[in-house]
Design a protein around this nucleic acid. Structure first.
Lengths: 197, 197
DNA sequence: ATTTGGTCTGACCATTTGGTCAACACTGTT
DNA sequence: AACAGTGTTGACCAAATGGTCAGACCAAAT
């Protein structure tokens, strides 16, 4: 049962409004307007605001999964993998709002944490991969958990709190966005540097 | 005119509730209960929710300022400065919610960005400091803006999105908090490493 | 004792908002 | 034509919530 056009337009509208206004700030009427239907119709497709939100949230968590396979195929050298992963992650975060995710996860962990956990199985693939490299003596002998946190931080934070960072850099939002584009490459270099012997 | 006891208890309660629930999720009744007064009294001290919020927000922005002077006195060597700054920043973020700040800045930039900008004058002190070191050939010849973003990311993100990171590390929240304590030192090392020649 | 000014509150109001429902339209089937 | 199933909607409702207000309380000043 594939989604109808109306359903698709609802999901598109809801994603926009939820990401922009958050769950609490989002209005069912606004989502309906954005989707070009009545509020009653919106409730016909998704009985409650929660159910609609859960759907958006689940779609989001699914979008992160493919990137994790970076660490699992055995083709590239590790530096290329790091660069590929960093770029992919930053692209993902520039497209959909991570601030939204963190915000909602903080608001309703009871419901949302298990939803997110479903996607994860086995140990973290980056950590497994790094342990392998370390055993072969190819990378610096350091705690991969620290590296993982640093890597995710460097990729995520600039898109998550752009206003404050732009302020620190004394940039307006246009300048900041331009800077972040070039930052992706530099960030990858920094991370490679952290892992090199 | 220093604040009365009642006013102080309101500010304490409001900080707790706003940080936990966000501006939209916070209820004036809950703040009043937490402060041990009636809702009408709360409105007597702070006419509107907005005015109360602005006060909390301004107190927060003020708390970041002292740390910036790290880069301005000339005593320590640069590595000690980096370690001091990283620890101070992480302590600050562990005490008051940066997710809250980012969330509100995103919700109402019109009002909040100028409020934040008031605190900033002149160029960013870290960037000035690093330029000085670079001119003397003491550090790696790289863009200090990238380093600044990486530094803030590494310090801020772990406290901003703990749920998602804990998930990546396959930790529960107790384990995660323990890990983050040790992470502060490792993070400082990583940053020193990024700046070393 | 009375007044005055500040502090505090229960009761109340206006608005917003998620959600419901009866009625209507449209399409395909008998 | 009659019927059934699916979508669609305007009108409406109940609850939540920020904010108001008349009046109570109380200590200090007169």
């Amino acid at each position: 049962m594939e989604p109808t056009d109306t359903e698709k337009s609802i999901l598109k509208a809801a994603t926009l409004v939820f990401e922009r206004d958050g769950f609490l700030g989002a209005r069912m009427q606004v989502i309906a307007d954005e989707a070009g239907i009545s509020k009653a119709s919106l409730h016909y497709y998704f009985r409650t605001k929660e159910k609609l939100f859960d759907r958006i949230f689940d779609d989001y968590t699914a979008s992160i999964v493919p990137l994790l396979s970076t660490w699992e195929d055995g083709t590239d050298d590790w530096q290329a993998k790091v660069r590929h992963f960093v770029k992919g992650l930053m692209k993902l975060f520039s497209e959909s709002s991570l601030l939204f995710m963190a915000q909602e996860l903080h608001r309703d962990p009871e419901n949302l944490e298990p939803r997110m956990a479903k996607r994860r199985q086995g140990p973290n693939p980056f950590i497994t991969y790094y342990e392998g490299l370390r055993a072969k003596g190819l990378v610096r002998d350091t705690d991969p958990r620290t590296l993982l946190v640093a890597m995710q931080s460097i990729c995520a934070y600039p898109s998550m709190n752009p206003k404050m960072l732009a302020g620190s850099l004394r940039m307006n939002s246009k300048e900041y966005n331009a800077f972040i584009t070039s930052y992706a490459d530099d960030a990858a270099d920094l991370l490679v540097r952290m892992m090199q012997k």
